[in-house]
Design a protein around this nucleic acid. Structure first.
Lengths: 204, 204
DNA sequence: GTCTATAGCGGGATAGAC
DNA sequence: GTCTATCCCGCTATAGAC
């Protein structure tokens, strides 16, 4: 019975909650310590600074998000349309299950766009993944199944349609302050509807 | 030669710059005062608190943003397709001209979604505007020109496709850290391309 | 209206006992 | 490893002279 709990893990979980809820600047070490049922000095003992702890949480969240789309985009067994359907379904489901995540990542990264370059795109080879997608799109165009569209623009469209509604969900709740179920139902439908929307837009 | 400059206006302009660049929490009254070539006490003399000054800037930005779409959506001379083209063109152009604005608004409002309800949707009658759009969509469907789609979902799509790319623009710059012109060109094309994309997706 | 000076607080970080 | 106590800084806000 040496340990019925792991302090380090407790801190990480508390930090995740606090940072995701309040963002870097609004979160405090006192707050994190309290939520881990521990004192502030311990947090500094395990992680030297607030920044260290924060980037641990941020990197984790970012990796979780990017891995999903990279896995799908590099899967050679899927054609363009299956890729679109899979990405849309998985992301919208993902954001419904982890509603804090898109707000958290966006909120932080909006004010520090350099983080994307400086910390998070290291060994992620995004350009290779993009090239694969771009080539596949080109082939599909030559086969005459889709109309011409820039790969970057299409990717922007896909991501926009999945991510943006998830980000503004808490604000949408404020508009009809009673009937949130309407918005939730729309989001549920979008898991397949958005893919149909995109595919209809790019097919010849 | 009583006054060759208006202190109050100087403060507002400085506040706009500082708040839009750093966000509420990271911005400081010292910073704002310095940028207005004035001392901190004066800022408190004209606007009682940091919060007051901030909401002046935030409300202004929000109004600027919402007025645009409301004007178009309630214009009875435009059919659905013209409305979509107009909104897309105007917003993407608008964000190109004021690149700070979408990041600023999103960044603040992500962490305080209640502001939308508590402060910014007052006397904006968003529900009426939405109803108008929804009715028009219904009529178009009955005429057989478009396929069936929820008005909320379509509006989400339009806004997502305009706003999200503008928000992530600074991050996109980080990905190819040299060649920003590629992204800018894509955005330029999107002023018409996004509307085509949407219209193709909803037409029967 | 405009300034300087400072009150008062809340934050991150650390020293040092146990 | 864990705690309490404290340092020190930067922030908002205000008091009070001019």
């Amino acid at each position: 019975m040496k340990k019925d709990r792991n302090t380090e893990q407790d801190i990480i979980e508390a930090a995740r909650l606090v940072f995701q809820e309040k963002g870097y600047k609004e979160a405090t070490m006192r707050d994190i310590a309290a939520r881990a049922n521990i004192n502030m000095a311990m947090v500094h003992y395990y992680f030297r600074s607030k920044e260290n702890l924060f980037f641990m949480i941020l990197d984790e969240a970012f990796r979780l998000l990017v891995e999903k789309i990279v896995t799908v985009l590099t899967n050679e067994e899927l054609d363009i349309f299956e890729k679109i359907r899979t990405i849309v379904r998985e992301y919208i489901t993902f954001f419904s299950e982890k509603p804090y995540l898109p707000q958290f990542l966006m909120g932080e990264v909006i004010r520090n766009p350099e983080w994307i370059g400086k910390r998070m795109l290291k060994n992620m080879s995004f350009l290779t993944v993009f090239r694969t997608f771009s080539d596949q799109l080109e082939k599909e165009y030559e086969r005459g199944t889709i109309r011409q569209i820039s790969a970057l623009s299409l990717l922007l469209n896909i991501i926009s349609l999945c991510v943006f509604p998830a980000i503004i969900k808490p604000m949408a709740y404020q508009v009809n302050d009673c009937d949130n179920s309407v918005f939730d139902l729309v989001i549920e439908d979008r898991k397949t509807e958005v893919a149909d929307f995109i595919i209809k837009a790019i097919k010849v």
